[in-house]
Write a protein that binds this DNA or RNA. Sequence first.
DNA 1: GTCTATACGCCGATAGAC
DNA 2: GTCTATCGGCGTATAGAC
Lengths: 207, 207
Amino acid sequence: MRNARSRRPGRPPQVEIDEPTAEKILRAAAECFMDQGFAAVSMDDVAERADVTKAVVYYYYGSKTELFQRAMMAVMRASRERTQAILREHGPLRERLQKLTRTRLAIPATLDMNHILRGSQRALRQDQLDEMHRAEEQLVEVIAQALHAEMAEGRLRPVDAVFVARSYLALLGMGQAELRRRGGGQAAIDEIAADIVDLLWRGIEPR
Amino acid sequence: MRNARSRRPGRPPQVEIDEPTAEKILRAAAECFMDQGFAAVSMDDVAERADVTKAVVYYYYGSKTELFQRAMMAVMRASRERTQAILREHGPLRERLQKLTRTRLAIPATLDMNHILRGSQRALRQDQLDEMHRAEEQLVEVIAQALHAEMAEGRLRPVDAVFVARSYLALLGMGQAELRRRGGGQAAIDEIAADIVDLLWRGIEPR
DNA sequence: GTCTATACGCCGATAGAC
DNA sequence: GTCTATCGGCGTATAGAC
């Protein structure tokens, strides 16, 4: 048997880098809630997914509604920033949209607030609902701004940019459902993204 | 005090025609489930909305899942028939689509199965899920057929009709959300319907 | 910080009176 | 057919040991 002292000094390397518990829970909660919705997810479900006990979840987040809101706000914030980053790149808008669509299809995160808030209205306080709706409007605004800038240059016909932005998000949601049906890999993602952007683009390009 | 015999003979007219209890419950259930989703609705909620007690609900429907499925299947069936009726009318497809959109926006019934089934997967049996997915495919097929017929005549560019049908349903869902935001009446309905069909039509009309 | 144990209410479902 | 009453389980939330 090896002597214990033969171990190398210093802290042993960890197999995985430990995510701080609070973040681990938040991520698990986001996955659960986006998959099943507020009402269908129990705190035990979240705890199990985060590999902690329910009491630990309550140590970091005081209630289910608080956890729900924090998790969803984090998702919306990250989504908005990624979206903004892609839309602010250089190149034709159509190609930026295509890249955005491919990126969004590759991750299962839904951006549709009406989808997310389903079945949670009775549980959430009004100010929580308001905050989440504001988060959605900010995301819509990011997309609408990109469209508006393009219109100002005359490369798009003048339409209601907010309406088009919401249409895009709706089509994106359909694309995610389509992807789940096909269970496809990158090829399916590329194809669906191309179809979505093609349909949308024909709807807004000038003649 | 009037003599009881002064009452007119025969059955007194009812203020409202009584809907049979089973149908009344089914309708209440459909409203609840479409509004809140499966998990967020309790049998007491349905009973209250149908103005009966919970025990009566269980007298007609053996379980929550059974009630859910029957209610949603009834909605999908009615929606498919109404959709088919409108799309089979005469006149340009674009106008039929516009009428369909206005009609669908006027009623709050969601047709998006992915929306409806959210948070119910763990509760439903696989054969129930399959049946509901089939119901959605049938609705998609009705719309896709109308598109296909138009393509065969060369009045639409050749696209994946099923994909376009799903896109239309996604835009319709967005329109319903938009309508809830504006809280609008017929004017808002007409405007949103026009915008949706315009966007979609530009995407599929030949050049 | 994380655990076990538990209080307590709500919900699905049933029994039995009327 | 419809009611009241109730059972058992799950789910949120908390107390208190470690």
